[in-house]
Amino acid sequence: MLVKRLQPMISHARRNYVELMFQVMGRALQAISEVDETTRKETRALPDGFLFEMQVMPNGPKLIVEHTGDGLLHYHSNGAPRAVDLSIQFKHITHAFLVLSFQEKTSVAFANDRMLVDGDVSLAVRMTRVLNRLESFILPKLVAQRAVKEYPADLHLPEKLMSAARIYLKVATHFVETVRA
């Protein structure tokens, strides 16, 4: 009975959590492309103006970033300016929650058919590598190990802390700027 009453609240909280995580990740993707050369090496292969989306089907929360050139990503907080080039779509909000709460690795979610790729698969593989790198940087090692297939052996604490601090600072600044605007 109690569970039944709580269900709408749980669903609502889960949706809000996914929405918030997408906002953080979108801004963090922009930030990591500004602070990490390895990430830029990956993203330089994307065409300029390339729009990448992660979305919960059918019209759920989403994050959209654009490759603006030279490996730099730009987060679009107000939706896509045009049709996206690549979309990774969670089939249900529950599946997005599993991944974004680090209960299921992104690679496992793909293997479990939780997500669909609409667009160039090779670019989706590349974007997944970028997401993995981001998670390895910004999450504590114990949590990151639950999120990525393999925690990078060459990522040492000083580099991780420095980069994470810069990424979080940029994310916070972006949030403030968005609120002000």
Binding site: S107, A111, V117, V121, S122, A124, V125, K149, E150
Partner: peptide, 13 residues
């Protein structure tokens, strides 16, 4: 090979 879709399902990174 690193950009091939099947690499996602390899058990090791």
């Amino acid at each position: 090979a690193l950009d091939d879709g099947s690499i996602m399902f390899n058990p090791k990174e």
